[in-house]
Structure formats: structure tokens, C-alpha cells
């Protein structure tokens, strides 16, 4: 699971993909997940970290995280490699 190397997330949650010219916005939780992926963390690590910070049950968090990763793939921002 890898975020493409030329993709950067700004502090305000703005993402630009130079390969396609598309831009995106993410909310703070989305931005944190992307930065955890860049650090090489697994989905389990990520949800573990987030549960320290947010008031949320593990099932919902896992479901929402998987859904978010699906969208990143869909937008060609995330690769499985």
C-alpha cells in the first residue's frame, strides 16, 4: 500500500496529482490517514493510532478507513505495491 511519491498533501488538506492534473480536498482525518500510509503503516496500525485520538468503535473506524482507502485507489492516488 503506497501513496504515489509525487503526491503532496498541503496543511489545508489540498491534494494535487501532477500525473492527471486533478485536485482533491481531504478532511483532517483523511489527511492523517494519508500521512500514516506515507510512513509505511498498515491498516491495523493506522486504526490503532486513530482510536487513541477519536471517540469511535473499532468496527466503524475500520469500515470507514477501508472505504477511504478504496476511494484513494479509485482516484489513482494509492497503489497496492
Amino acid at each position: 500500500m503506497k501513496i504515489k511519491s509525487n503526491i503532496a498533501v498541503s496543511d489545508s488538506g489540498f491534494i494535487f496529482n501532477p500525473d492527471t492534473g486533478e485536485s482533491f480536498t481531504v478532511n483532517p482525518l483523511g489527511a492523517s490517514i494519508i500521512s500514516y500510509i506515507k510512513e509505511g503503516k498498515s491498516v491495523k496500525d493506522i486504526t490503532g493510532e486513530l482510536r487513541q485520538v477519536y471517540e469511535i468503535d473499532v468496527n466503524t473506524l475500520e469500515k470507514d478507513t477501508e472505504d477511504f482507502l478504496g476511494l484513494l485507489k479509485n482516484f489513482s492516488l494509492l497503489t497496492d505495491a
Binding site: I15, E22, S23, F24, T25, V26, N27, P28, L29, G30, I33, Q52, V53, Y54, E55, I56, T60, L61, D64, T65, D67, F68, L71, L72, F75
Partner: peptide, 14 residues
């Protein structure tokens, strides 16, 4: 104290 949860969101800008 834990923060209120908001699920992760990404939106393509049109």
C-alpha cells in the same frame, strides 16, 4: 479526552 469522530473524506474538486 478523545475528539469527536468525523469519518475520513476525500473529494475531487470539480
Amino acid at each position: 479526552e478523545k475528539q469527536r469522530y468525523e469519518r475520513p473524506l476525500i473529494k475531487r474538486m470539480e
